[in-house]
Design a protein around this nucleic acid. Structure first.
Lengths: 349, 349
DNA sequence: GCTTATCATGTAAGCGCTTACATTGGGCGA
DNA sequence: TCGCCCAATGTAAGCGCTTACATGATAAGC
């Protein structure tokens, strides 16, 4: 194996005549040191003479040299990226969460691979299939995407680093809300303000198996029951966490013979849709139908929406921090963070 | 990840081995062929006997083998990922664009690296610094992030594949709106509906050098001028494309001695803020102040907002397609797609 | 039957780094 | 002055793939 590599492939796709990207050998040659020294100097490793380091840095910047991350990864064993999975992307909540994550990862110089898994099929494929996320990233953040216990165990055994947002998962760190408590607070508020016939716009969807709406519903239901006004299940509609879904669900409720006088919407976006439906029916909120939302979306204040506030960007940031820790620590330790929620009373309830 | 290394070092004991990821050699050994054949079989390359291929596939699936993308990339020269840069992340427009891109790339089995560059510094660092995007992805989509002509030339020489969304860039494909035309349409509508004292909420920001607001302003201004009512520059405010910015800008305008009777807002989100400000001042739209927005945000209809519609998700999808093409085609050919806009007249103007 | 395409497969050289280990050369205590 | 230790540097073996090229076997051509 004493062969000089001089036989660069010609570029497979592009036409000739391009400046070749400098590689570590070029830098080493130009600086008159070995590649090992270049590697060390560039990464601020110890045992490099200051003068050498300076020279290497100077040469590198002159050649506009940047280490090829792919090669570093292969050799170094870590990819410097984390994968983030969300069910969908263009929704207020997920965009905010991802923004929070991104900010933290950027500071740590970690790249973010984004995946939307919008169905159970996609989920399975993502976790197992050829696109297997690991190998691509050092860790995974799953935002409201289910991880079965079996999967969690398997990944744990493989040494995977995972953080889940929205639901707890065995073996891994998580960050959640006290969903039941939050929903209970909404229930209590509606009861306190005199309502007894109360509807719910949930976020259930056939495509996903969200845990979150289930828990919110349970908490809401339990509290209503505890307060002596059990939930009438005929007043529950799913809005799939979307504006239109909320509108449609509300329309259905309004057109019942005996519509609810108050509705708990599991997201503000659905609540906006519901408010629109109310307006279209020439009704008003809270006079005709009170609405409590969930999220405290930036726009909630414009609608005067009473809602359960969660600090979404903070959740993202915490997820980012948890994942950074999970990537570093050698002894796996898990932490379950529960972030607070707060009922913000505005006009609609 | 971390543990792999230590374990690799041990002799290949047959005992545990439970969490060692299979590699191509394992598959080759188990299938009784060479790694080259495994590689070919797994990638559906020609010159593999059907029986061999089947055997390899069977073994691979049994061992839950998935090729290490990092290694493939290093060896194969392409990364199978594209980088997407946006100024910010948690805004309706960018989330939609990214969603559109993601959908297209997912189908092509391409990963998406997401970067938010929220300042000129970040921009420079991203384009040049150690985090240099190339090497990490085969191509780049820049969404409303500037690329100077010098940078464009440099990247072109380096053989980079770039697609820009929001503004044209020399050497690379792009997808834009007829910004000036769209803004002109808004101007015309306001003049047509009898306004002459017209304000503007722009999206300028000190952090970015957006081209988009500049062009919209130029188009708007030119049209007003052409119609005989030149823009009064004292009626221009920047809302930084944010809800709060729009609200603040509108407040300032309303508190002028002689406020405008109509305002063109360069985004719907700013328009929402503006409408809120109007309401807070106990005024109404359009009676007291007419508003025309830009985007046709999902919520625009709830506010009865008259606005310039652009098909954002389509833009993302087209960007995705352009970038896929740019990655494949050997002879670089650029295409400049201009997507249509449409003035949607609702209640506010 | 013998040469020659053709296909299936194997061999091994990288891809551009990281890092364990080897080597060198002072500084310094005795 | 000698030897030791350690910081500074070099050497080279991978990391897990892809792929050009070599090899072998089989079918086809005359």
């Amino acid at each position: 194996m004493r062969e000089m590599k001089d036989q660069r492939r010609d570029a497979p796709t592009t036409t000739a005549g391009q400046d070749k990207r400098a590689n570590i050998e070029d830098v080493a040659a130009a600086a008159g040191v070995s590649v090992a020294t270049v590697s060390r100097a560039l990464r601020d490793l110890p045992n490099v003479a200051p003068s050498t380091r300076d020279r290497v840095l100077a040469v590198a910047s002159e050649l506009a040299y940047v280490a090829n991350p792919t090669a570093s990864r292969l050799a170094g064993g870590r990819t410097g990226t984390v994968a983030v999975v969300v069910p969908v992307f263009d929704s207020w909540y997920f965009a905010k969460v991802v923004a929070g994550i991104e900010a933290v990862l950027k500071d740590a110089d970690i790249d973010l691979l984004l995946y939307a898994v919008d169905s159970e099929d996609a989920r399975k494929k993502f976790l197992a299939g050829r696109g297997a996320w690991w190998q691509r990233g050092d860790a995974l953040i799953m935002v409201d995407v289910r991880l079965t216990e079996a999967e969690a165990n398997r990944f744990d055994q493989l040494g995977a680093r995972i953080v889940t947002v929205g639901c707890e998962t065995p073996n891994f760190s998580s960050i959640t809300l006290d969903e039941k408590g939050a929903a209970a607070a909404a229930a209590r508020h509606l009861i306190d303000t005199g309502h007894t016939r109360i509807g719910v716009l949930t976020g259930h969807s056939k495509a996903h198996e969200f845990r979150v709406p289930v828990m919110r519903l349970e908490g809401f239901q339990a509290e209503l029951e505890a307060l002596g006004h059990p939930l009438d299940s005929s007043l529950v509609r799913s809005g799939g966490f979307s504006l239109d879904g909320g509108r449609d669900g509300m329309v259905e409720l309004l057109e019942l013979e005996n519509p609810p006088t108050a509705v708990f919407s599991m997201s503000d976006e659905m609540a906006f849709g519901a408010l629109d439906a109310i307006k279209s029916h020439n009704l008003r909120s809270p006079e005709d139908v009170a609405i409590v939302g969930f999220d405290d979306n930036d726009l909630a204040t414009l609608f005067g929406l009473t809602t359960v506030r969660q600090k979404v960007e903070t959740i993202g940031a915490i997820a980012g921090r948890l994942v950074l820790r999970a990537m570093q620590e050698s002894d796996r330790m898990t932490e379950h963070v529960v972030t607070p929620t707060e009922l913000i009373v505005r006009a609609t309830a």
